[in-house]
Write a protein that binds this DNA or RNA. Structure first.
Lengths: 129, 129
DNA sequence: TTGTGTGCAAAGCATTTGCACGGCT
DNA sequence: AGCCGTGCAAATGCTTTGCACACAA
């Protein structure tokens, strides 16, 4: 099913080396920088496959979709600077959340908190991004 | 700032009467059905304003963005039938989640669980939507 | 050898925008 | 009266797709 092509390996390598949580556009640029011969369509197709295969995680929030490698954590997005940071929740809290759903087959938890990060809270700012 | 135009009232009325959680396309169609003279661009612009004003809530998940009226609850989306249902969490659980973030200004919590709903779990199915 | 993956360019869609007009306040 | 909101249609921009070729299994 899933072939270990060079492009797949290289795109995965770029994602896993990402310090930030890129969206598809940023990811495309990073891939283009390091592996210029990889086409745009390949990035789109490959990332979707990696998500489907459970190797890469989607972060869906109000400003779009971001990607994360190997994530069993959650996210906070600053409405001012746009930075996305990781949040870790205990199994206890997660189980309490899951216990509120009658389905016994939860496959994914997309949790994104949005607000003003500590750094932005300190400085002056006017309005949100 | 926000003018109480007929279009705004009518679009809000359509959203608030929605039994389901429509995406922008479904919402456009519902608006078109009931108020054919309202243009497509107006639906887009107005919904975005209603979200910005905190009157309508965005639900962001892997299949796109859905809208909800007056929501202080959370959501579950079935990967098989696509249905979105409401989840209610106690303040206790929410506070435990929030306590994991160093920011003291959380403005929004986007929480979407995905899995197979009870109804779909009962029946046979092959593959996800 | 076979069929999936890839690159390119074009097609297909969803969303935004410019502009003139309408209607809140 | 002034100005934001609206409708229309065009523009924009993101994502997908068709096709011929490449390459992993």
């Amino acid at each position: 099913m899933e072939r270990e092509t060079n492009q797949r390996k290289q795109i995965l390598e770029v994602i896993s080396n990402c310090y930030t949580h890129p969206n598809i556009k940023e990811l495309s640029m990073l891939v283009k920088e390091k592996y210029p011969s990889i086409g745009q369509a390949t990035v789109y197709r490959t990332v979707n496959k990696l998500v489907k295969d459970g190797i890469v995680t989607r972060i869906d929030c109000s400003t779009g979709t971001y990607y994360d490698f190997n994530s069993n954590h959650y996210h906070f997005r600053c409405l001012h600077c746009g930075k996305i940071s990781d949040i870790y929740l205990s199994d206890d809290v997660i189980n309490k959340i899951l216990s509120n759903v009658s389905s016994n087959k939860i496959i994914k938890v997309n949790l994104v908190l949005e607000g003003i990060c500590e750094e932005c809270s300190k400085g002056d700012y006017n309005g949100f991004k």
